[in-house]
Design a binder for these strands. Structure first.
Lengths: 137, 137
DNA sequence: GTTTAAATGCAATAGTGTTGCAAATATAAC
DNA sequence: GTTATATTTGCAACACTATTGCATTTAAAC
């Protein structure tokens, strides 16, 4: 049984052709955030609605999470360790390369370093870095 | 001459009815990020295309900047001090209240606290905080 | 194999944002 | 105040992203 099949089974999701293909794609680039339109391209002729529903299902099950990289584009990335239980990912940072537009997860950081008035109750911190990635410099 | 009129003059932009109304709105809530659809509501019957073009013009002139608060919505806020020269705003943080959905600028922070592999050249840092704001708690 | 609940695919729809172009208008020159 | 002109506006049309309802298909359990 492949990783994708195992993952679906562990989430009690039915094994369908598209779900397996989408999962394979994410598992193939575990630290990259993939844009929805890019997924459509890579998958070829798929029903767009089904793809969107697949992504929503995966998000709800904590398989993938939306990535905030400072663009307004919808990008998803595979969840790791800390975010497998919920789709919410806390204190997580992403880096967007301004040259190649690739977005990658760069792991967690210490949110203690941010000071806010105590009247604000902060429950989630997302950091969007951008610049030039190692490949492009 | 009002603040809005002065601002337009200083940017060598023509004084039009819509521009003045939009500017007044932003100047009225100098630390809030306003969603485009919300602007449409508050302005009443305005031509949507003209509004979008107005926002783009203001953004290009460094009057307002796009705010990244972790939602995929387009929100703009007035530029202050550090971001008046460009539409790019650096090392800036915003706070989104999960209860009332208001987004406010919470000022700058120290980006030194983020550690990344040195092969990444970071030129821009955006921080999206979310939780409960003082009004809602 | 049969059953059934879940997933898919299609049609229709909504929201956001853009471009081209003719008409209107703000500013500057007279 | 009038006129000239470059800017701005408003409309039509379009593109992209995303969602909902519903009939059909299919995966998994029996």
């Amino acid at each position: 049984m492949t990783d994708s099949e195992n993952l679906l089974k562990s989430k009690k999701l039915r094994k369908t052709a598209l779900r397996l293909r989408v999962l394979d794609l994410f598992l193939g680039k575990p630290h990259s955030a993939v844009q929805t339109s890019r997924l459509e391209e890579e998958l070829g002729e798929v029903d767009r609605i089904t793809l969107y529903r697949t992504l929503k299902t995966f998000e709800k099950e904590g398989i993938i999470h939306k990535v905030m990289d400072g663009t307004q584009l919808t990008k998803y990335a595979l969840c790791h360790d800390t975010c497998t239980t919920h789709s919410v990912e806390e204190d997580h940072a992403h880096f967007l390369c301004e040259s190649c537009s690739e977005t990658i997860c760069v792991g967690n950081f210490d949110m203690q370093s941010i000071t806010l008035p105590p009247s604000y109750r902060v429950t989630k911190v997302q950091l969007a870095l951008s610049g030039i990635c190692p490949n492009c410099s």
